[in-house]
Lab assay of single mutants.
Amino acid sequence: MGFKLLSKLLVYLTASIMAIASPLAFSVDSSGEYPTVSEIPVGEVRLYQIADGVWSHIATQSFDGAVYPSNGLIVRDGDELLLIDTAWGAKNTAALLAEIEKQIGLPVTRAVSTHFHDDRVGGVDVLRAAGVATYASPSTRRLAEVEGNEIPTHSLEGLSSSGDAVRFGPVELFYPGAAHSTDNLIVYVPSASVLYGGCAIYELSRTSAGNVADADLAEWPTSIERIQQHYPEAQFVIPGHGLPGGLDLLKHTTNVVKAHTNRSVVE
């Protein structure tokens, strides 16, 4: 069995187990497998329904001669939608809004960016022009300005110390501490036991640490421990890039980060 097929099978099995364990909360999309990078042309966006009122959005972007996937989250909030992270750029984010209108038909009224990198804030200006209120932590807003990236308009308070959590509509926002970046936030959907790890969490097929220019490698494993301790009931975990899975993604990420750190020390 090929690795790609095995990865998709694991996603399907995880979703099936969740649907059985929580039949009222989960209505997993039966329309197909989780979209992969090879299936999404740059400039297009796919939506994948995880649970009743919960979707991931998947886009792709060219970077350094390669094409990478990027995940975000959409959560229903009454007759409105909360968006977590842009679709990595203005063109993708405009396509995301169009796809949401086509498939869901509810307005996106608020959006949260989970850290300051372009795959999370690139497209904020498109959201703002569409009347979406954009939010991020003060740290993310400051770092985005320093980096020359787009800056969300509103500040999220109460997320300055490791372990801080605040309720934001249908989700809980959690600051686990520094990891992929010093400002990275985690998003949890309690009604569906869905954990969105953003770039602080890796997919299972990833074996290298990737972009760690703004990471705190020493603190990252401790931050992941905080996530595990705060959300032990999480059933569906979405990484910032690639295929979702279960809580095993947290341990896998820790292993990859520690291996990278150990290699760096040896070198």
Rank of each mutant, 00 (worst) to 15 (best):
K4Y: 15
S205W: 09
P221Q: 08
P170T: 08
P35T: 13
G53K: 11
H180W: 01
V112R: 04
V124G: 05
R226Q: 08
I40G: 15
H57N: 03
R120H: 06
D248M: 10
V256H: 04
A59D: 06
W55H: 02
I238H: 01
P69S: 15
N149G: 11
S264K: 10
G105R: 10
V45F: 02
G169T: 05
A98W: 13
L47I: 11
V132K: 04
L97W: 02
A192T: 12
L250K: 03
S155Y: 09
E150V: 03
V67K: 15
E44N: 11
I17M: 09
A111H: 06
S7T: 07
A234P: 07
N149E: 10
H57F: 02
S161H: 14
I74S: 03
H154N: 14
D214L: 06
T261W: 09
F116P: 01
E267I: 06
A21D: 15
F63C: 05
G198V: 04
E145A: 13
L9Q: 15
A51N: 09
Y202M: 15
D52F: 10
L247F: 09
N92G: 06
I40A: 15
A209Q: 08
K91I: 14
K258W: 10
G163Q: 08
T153H: 13
A111K: 04
P35Y: 10
A98V: 11
G131E: 08
D164W: 07
Y196E: 02
T114E: 00
D29K: 07
I17R: 08
L204I: 13
E219Y: 07
L96N: 01
S191A: 11
H252Y: 06
Q103R: 14
V146F: 13
Q49Y: 14
I58R: 09
V121C: 00
A179K: 01
L195D: 00
V257P: 01
D183Q: 01
E39A: 14
E101S: 12
S30F: 08
T182K: 13
L195M: 07
G177F: 01
G122M: 09
K4A: 04
R226K: 08
K258H: 11
N71E: 00
H260C: 09
I104G: 00
H57A: 01
E145P: 06
G210Q: 06
N92M: 00
E39K: 13
Q103E: 14
W220G: 01
Q228C: 07
S62C: 05
S56I: 12
V126M: 05
I238F: 05
V108G: 03
R142D: 14
E157F: 11
Q229M: 13
V212L: 05
G43V: 05
K251F: 11
V212C: 04
A87L: 03
T253F: 03
L6K: 12
L127I: 04
V45S: 06
K251I: 08
Y196Q: 00
T182A: 11
V212Y: 06
A144K: 04
Q229C: 02
G89A: 02
G32K: 07
L82Y: 06
D52K: 10
S22D: 15
L159I: 10
S27A: 15
V187D: 04
I17Y: 08
Q229V: 12
A178N: 09
L6W: 09
N262A: 11
V121T: 05
V112T: 05
R263P: 13
L159Q: 00
I227C: 02
V212I: 10
D164S: 13
F174V: 02
L83P: 01
R226L: 08
A213T: 10
L96R: 01
G169C: 05
A25N: 14
K251A: 10
D119G: 04
A59Y: 06
A129E: 12
L250D: 01
G158T: 07
T36H: 08
E39G: 14
S38Q: 08
W88K: 00
G123T: 04
Y188R: 00
A94S: 14
V146D: 14
A21K: 15
I58N: 06
Y68K: 04
L96A: 00
I40T: 15
D79G: 11
G245Y: 05
L5R: 11
T182R: 12
S56H: 14
T222C: 05
S16G: 15
R263G: 14
V124N: 05
T153G: 09
S16Y: 12
G72K: 02
T253H: 02
E157C: 05
I20V: 15
T153A: 12
V132A: 07
A15L: 10
A95I: 13
A130Q: 15
W55D: 00
T14A: 07
V108S: 00
N184K: 02
V126K: 05
V166R: 11
E267N: 07
P41R: 11
E172K: 04
G43Q: 08
M1Y: 05
V212H: 07
R141C: 06
S205C: 03
V187W: 01
G65N: 10
I186M: 06
Y135P: 00
R128T: 11
S161Y: 11
L243F: 10
A144M: 04
G122S: 07
H154C: 06
G148I: 04
A66T: 11
V126W: 08
V265R: 11
D214P: 06
S70F: 04
T254P: 05
S193E: 13
G89R: 03
E203M: 03
F174W: 02
H117G: 00
G245P: 02
A98D: 10
E203T: 06
D125E: 12
S160K: 13
R110G: 09
A129S: 11
V67S: 15
Y188K: 00
E99C: 06
K102P: 06
D248C: 07
G78R: 09
F63L: 12
W220V: 00
M18D: 12
W55G: 01
D248F: 09
N255C: 06
S191C: 05
T14P: 13
I201V: 14
V189N: 01
T207S: 13
D214V: 05
T254K: 11
R167N: 10
L9F: 09
T222R: 11
V124A: 08
L47C: 01
P170R: 07
T109H: 13
P239A: 04
V112N: 03
G32A: 10
L97V: 05
G169F: 06
S181C: 02
G240T: 01
L10W: 06
H180V: 00
S56M: 15
G158E: 09
N92L: 03
V266R: 12
R76M: 11
V37F: 15
V212D: 11
G246F: 05
S113R: 03
D77I: 01
L185C: 04
A25C: 14
T36K: 13
E99G: 12
G148Y: 07
H57I: 01
F26G: 15
Y68G: 05
W55I: 00
L24I: 15
T114F: 04
G210K: 06
V28S: 13
F174N: 03
T153L: 11
P244S: 07
T114A: 03
D216W: 06
V265Q: 12
N149L: 13
I186H: 06
M18Q: 15
P35S: 14
L143Q: 10
G32Q: 09
R141D: 03
H115M: 00
L81M: 07
I224C: 01
S193F: 13
E145L: 13
V37C: 07
R141A: 08
Q103C: 08
V75S: 01
P152Q: 00
K8D: 14
K258C: 07
L204Y: 09
S208L: 12
A98C: 07
G131M: 07
G177M: 03
P232S: 10
K251E: 11
G131K: 11
T93M: 01
F236W: 12
P23Q: 14
A179T: 07
G177A: 03
Y68F: 15
G158P: 07
R141V: 08
D52L: 10
N184E: 00
A90R: 10
F3W: 06
Q61L: 09
G32Y: 12
G105M: 09
H180G: 00
R110C: 06
G123F: 02
A259M: 10
K102N: 12
G242Y: 04
V112A: 06
L47R: 03
G245M: 03
G32H: 14
L195A: 01
V212T: 09
D118G: 07
L13P: 07
I201N: 04
